[in-house]
Design a protein around this nucleic acid. Sequence first.
DNA 1: ACAAAAGTGTTGAGAGTACACCCATGC
DNA 2: GCATGGGTGTACTCTCAACACTTTTGT
Lengths: 224, 224
Amino acid sequence: MTQTDERPVVTVDVVIFTLRQDDLLVLLVRRGQPPFEGLWALPGGFVHADETLEAAALRELQEETGVRDVYLEQLYTFGDPGRDPRGRMISVAYFALVPGAEIELHSGGNARDARWWSVYALPELAFDHGRIVNYALTRLRYKLEYTAVGFQLLPDEFTLSELQRAYEVILGEKLDKRNFRSKLRKAQVVEPVHRYRESKGRPAQLYRFRPDAVAETKARRLFP
Amino acid sequence: MTQTDERPVVTVDVVIFTLRQDDLLVLLVRRGQPPFEGLWALPGGFVHADETLEAAALRELQEETGVRDVYLEQLYTFGDPGRDPRGRMISVAYFALVPGAEIELHSGGNARDARWWSVYALPELAFDHGRIVNYALTRLRYKLEYTAVGFQLLPDEFTLSELQRAYEVILGEKLDKRNFRSKLRKAQVVEPVHRYRESKGRPAQLYRFRPDAVAETKARRLFP
DNA sequence: ACAAAAGTGTTGAGAGTACACCCATGC
DNA sequence: GCATGGGTGTACTCTCAACACTTTTGT
């Protein structure tokens, strides 16, 4: 009940993932002021007095991308002293998955740049944001293994090849087409919609995610 | 860069688990002041200006139990406005696992009560601490399934029956002895130490955790 | 001898993994 | 007719889950 004056500043930072052209992208904004002026950083800002942490993260997300109704999950809270040279800053990090459709970026009130970067070719990041992005990527890959969270990165309708490519891009490895499809069938997480996507070659059946599908797989237990 | 005056207060709260007599226990302290005077709450307190969040959690843990070198993991950050009637409070929750040995509790400077409670028979808790304990229990059960974290709750040497009972208490279900042991053998996470525990019936071989053992099992992927 | 807890294997079912060819369309 | 991507099944291995009796000690 002491130290009324040593209150740290609390912010939210959001790692926003999307897919585009067989690549996994993260949204970064270029800082217009010191410290780290000119470097790229995660979108984020202060938590308002009357909003929940999640609401603050959603607000940041919407200010940058305009999207609503996206997958958003609290990631971790970073609060080492010295992570911001201006003073004690505690950042509650979230990660968000937005569908791969073309999102037009809102450049924000203070006219800063915002653009997508491949997670596999990031620039130098301000603060400890590089560490935050790495942690978010680890968590995304991990969740992908036992939940159906990957669908959050795809549009409402998609082909099985698109879905498989999404998984391959995120996991960074090749998957077998027949095994992928047979597992999908068994899990009953997608259903065909009676339309086709035409491109080169044979047209592909379009599918959608079944919202009533069980979204979690049990982990294999270390002990029975 | 505005609202210098609206800074929330940041605290850490620690859910400290231990095992005793075939029960899973949580450490709670009785509040001596309003709000929620007389109710039980998680041990916790302010984050000092120069310490990391984890250091603050370790400090609280040590003040209450005297233990060091325990398993500690950040759980989640709770920050809804209104979770504390005194004002905006943001709590970074941690959970800790301490071995089941007899820990003598330090009653703390302000002479408040501290005692262990069964997670299966908790009293009414102050603030949103009931929710935090539930979340910690979910996480503990979950981690138990794919890591070797359960050993953190046992003394250095233990019998296989004790280990199995620990798992049963935490998971809230019976396990098959032969399957449990054969999976342990395959995972190579324990090794016998050449001593026995004598009690009623046949003496039991004592084991210890192998520190070089791989502590994680892969989750079964939803997709191949 | 008996009570109490420790210790020990096998079998059937389901899931994971590796692997190669035909199909429908546009040009 | 050929290039392009879409679509399909089988065999082997490994893990999971169910299940009951013998061993060692103290009294």
